[in-house]
Amino acid sequence: MTAVPTETKAAIRAPAPARPPAHRRTLVLERGRADRRYWLDLWTYRELFAILAWRDVAVRYKQTVVGVAWAALRPFLTMVIMTVVFHVVAKVKAPPGAPYAILVFAGLLPWTLFSTILSEASGSLVANANLVGKVYFPRIIIPASTALVALVDFAVALAILVAMMVWYRFVPSWRLLLIPGFVVLGVLASLGPALFVTALNVKYRDFRYIIPFIIQFGLYLAPVGYSSSVIPAAWRFWYSLNPVVGVIDGFRWCVLGGSSPLYLPGFFGSLAVVALLLVLGVAYFRRTERTFADLI
């Protein structure tokens, strides 16, 4: 019937050279089976994770000429407003020895990290629907890679903090060296809720309208514009269970040192909540990710 260019066909059918099957792994696809090699899979896909994160960063800073400036300007202006509202207008006192602006900015940095990860992650799977529907990879890579983008923004904002410290001639203590640890804690604290929200957003597309509301609300619930030491002692522990509170307090402790002592029971409570949310978030994400391609 059809004119068959026989050489192509012959070429394709030519016998395969024998290959040792030893280094080849056998994959079994079955309902609920994908789980077993989950973490191993994640490791094999680390390059994709890196390149997706790099793509998001590259695009973010390429598209807007003022990309870097924007990452710096936003937290800076928020800091100015918060300082004016809480310190100048509402007359909230800073702890002795700490400029109020630095107190606010040290709280704003982890908060911005948290809110950026939450909002960017929530829409990330839907934004990458064409990938999810066409290629396999552990889905968790996509929301997780938005955390790296948020970290780049964070680094830019951190530079401003340094500039402010110079401006106020504020000398930090050795605790500043612990900041990386709290950055990691901040990312973990954000990922738990972010994974929940990401998975929910695939199923319920109008969930994304709730996110900005949560973030706006959270900005005042979290001790960003004020220090958590203003909370009445009786409520302090319960207040500290908010995972963001632990991160912000820890951050302030690093930056301001003695003038912002760490409230330990609350801090450990906060850590426990972070861990719990992370475990639940990952578990929920994994349970639902198998159906993402069918929903998206």
Binding site: R24, V28, L29, E30, R33, G133, K134, V135, Y136, R290
Partner: peptide, 18 residues
């Protein structure tokens, strides 16, 4: 989609050696 692991089968199984 099942063979390329985009979605999982509801029943049965596939064994893939590569």
């Amino acid at each position: 989609k099942i063979l390329s692991r985009i979605t999982e089968p509801s029943e049965g199984r596939v064994t893939i050696g590569g």
